[in-house]
Design a protein around this nucleic acid. Structure first.
Length: 219
DNA sequence: TATTGATCATAT
DNA sequence: ATATGATCAATA
């Protein structure tokens, strides 16, 4: 690998300790007024702070690295799952793990923890210690198994039986503006059907493990 | 309280 | 309509 990911990590670590308010001010970004209306704000702010091309058509935010903010509580535990990518339902059955978008996205990830919580107003939330993750053999085996399970059940026409409980580390959940949105898919006979869009997510328990491996607590 | 299913903003 | 950035809010 080039040293780009390392350089990026260094820059991300330089942001540790700053509040989102400070970061927004430094980049001339207005802070959203309603927290519920600002779901993607943190991610876009960090992209900007780290110089990712906002309109990158590439698979990942940076040539060799995907950027993900990670909301954590006061104890440093992830508060949410992590979105990976939409599922291409019509093609899922034909795309194996090795060629999947999930694997491409997760090849190398720069995680930036952000301390978040109901009691913490967005401008006062702080950036934590960023870390770089590349999946281990064991982690990839877990991801591959979950992907294979989900893909095979979809191929069997059982999409509607799949819920967020499936998968040990990788799950399939709705991903849409609302529950009435539909996308094209097809049933076992190849007949077109319209279904709620789904996406792959990493379970919070999984990213918690990544955090522990990367930033072990010290006494 | 942890997790699932639903939702919101922005851009192409 | 699709993709990326996610978090909200109802439920188990």
């Amino acid at each position: 690998m080039s040293d780009e990911p390392r350089a990026l990590l260094g820059r991300a670590r330089g942001l540790a300790g700053f509040t989102l308010g400070e970061l927004a001010a430094a980049h001339g970004v207005p802070l959203p007024e309603a927290p519920t209306r600002s779901k993607g704000f943190v991610g876009r702010l960090l992209e900007r702070a780290l110089g990712a091309s906002p309109t990158s058509t590439a698979m990942t935010d940076f040539p060799e690295c995907e950027l993900k903010t990670l909301p954590v509580d006061a104890l440093g535990r992830p508060r949410e799952s992590t979105f990976v990518c939409h599922v291409q339902l019509p093609q899922l059955a034909e795309i194996g793990w090795d060629d999947s978008r999930v694997r491409a996205k997760l090849r190398r990830v720069l995680f930036v923890p952000i301390e978040t919580g109901r009691a913490l107003a967005q401008p006062t939330r702080r950036v934590g210690q960023a870390f770089l993750w590349e999946m281990s053999t064991e982690q990839e085996a877990l991801l591959r198994d979950d992907y294979a399970l989900l893909a095979s059940r979809v191929a069997l026409g059982e999409l509607e039986r799949i819920d967020a409980r499936w998968g040990r580390v990788l799950q399939l959940r709705p991903k849409a503006a609302n529950a009435r949105i539909r996308v094209r898919a097809h049933d076992l006979d190849g007949a077109p059907v319209r279904v709620l869009p789904r996406a792959f997510y990493l379970r919070a328990q999984f990213t918690a493990a990544l955090l522990r491996d990367a930033l072990p607590l010290r006494a």
